[in-house]
């Protein structure tokens, strides 16, 4: 029996196919254009190697900010529930999930089955999200992928206050104007984002262990800064961006089994 999970994020869209509960295919693509079309294309591409079509899927759960626009989904579930479920599947010892996505960052408290106990989310301002990092990378003319490693090279990070993206951007530009070292600015940006995320997390009663997911988890600079603040090592899944889609697929499986039973 095949089921699928789709996570349509603001920057990337992800798909995972399960066969009898095991991952048989996964795919990540940039989100761009109309979501209905993308979700079709992405799912078809993921299914093709199995020689399957969308109709062969017993059940599909969609998540992510574009979840309501996936035409073939049987159900929409928020990424908060999906990330909880996805993390618990691989790491049942995890009680807190930090998810740093393109548009949002979140802190999620879960039980051993991945059920959400409490959660927090960043406010409307993008400071503390992947989008912010992207804006900063552009302002500094550094590729997004290089930001994290670059941050680790600094011995004296600049102090950057980020209460708001616009404010921080002008601050970064004036630091560049003053001829400050790029690595120090980049390191300062990472500290500021980590500070912001840590501030948000403190609204939760953080319990160990802690996992980090989403695109932000692939940024080594950010992970290190967060670990420093949390005083513990973070669990970074191998494919941190796929956790939401995986959680969605697991929920799809439950649905399919539930239906069989009834």
């Amino acid at each position: 029996m095949y089921v699928a999970g789709m996570d349509i994020g603001s920057i990337f869209s992800k798909a995972i196919i399960l066969k009898d509960g095991q991952v048989v295919a996964s795919l990540i693509k940039r989100t761009g254009g109309e979501i209905k079309a993308i979700s079709h294309r992405l799912m078809e591409e993921a299914l093709a190697p199995q020689g399957l079509q969308i109709d062969d899927l017993k059940s599909v759960v969609a998540t992510g900010y574009g979840r309501i626009s996936v035409p073939f989904a049987d159900k929409q579930v928020t990424e908060i529930s999906c990330f909880g479920r996805g993390v618990a599947n691989s790491f049942p010892e995890v009680r807190t999930v930090i998810d740093i996505g393109g548009q949002d960052s979140k802190g999620i408290k879960i039980d051993e089955r991945g059920k959400v106990q409490d959660f927090v989310m960043n406010d409307k301002c993008a400071a503390g999200t992947g989008r912010f990092l992207e804006v900063m990378a552009n302002a500094l003319e550094v590729s997004l992928e290089d930001m994290g490693p670059l941050a680790l090279q600094s011995g004296s990070p600049e102090e950057i206050g980020i209460t708001c993206t616009v404010f921080a951007e002008s601050q970064v530009i004036s630091l560049v104007g003053e001829g400050r070292r790029k690595v120090d600015i980049v390191a300062g940006i990472h500290q500021a984002i980590a500070e912001r995320i840590h501030g948000m997390l403190r609204m939760l009663r953080i319990e160990e262990r802690i996992a980090i997911t989403g695109g932000g988890a692939k940024n080594i600079g950010l992970v290190k800064e967060l670990e420093k603040r949390l005083g513990t090592e973070l669990i970074v899944p191998e494919e941190p961006q796929l956790i939401g889609a995986h959680g969605a697929a697991l929920l799809a499986l439950e649905m399919a089994l539930g239906r069989k039973g009834s």
Binding site: G161, T163, Q171
Partner: peptide, 9 residues
């Protein structure tokens, strides 16, 4: 709170 102070501005 200096987080709301932009020296340059």
């Amino acid at each position: 709170d200096l987080r709301f102070f932009s020296e340059g501005q």
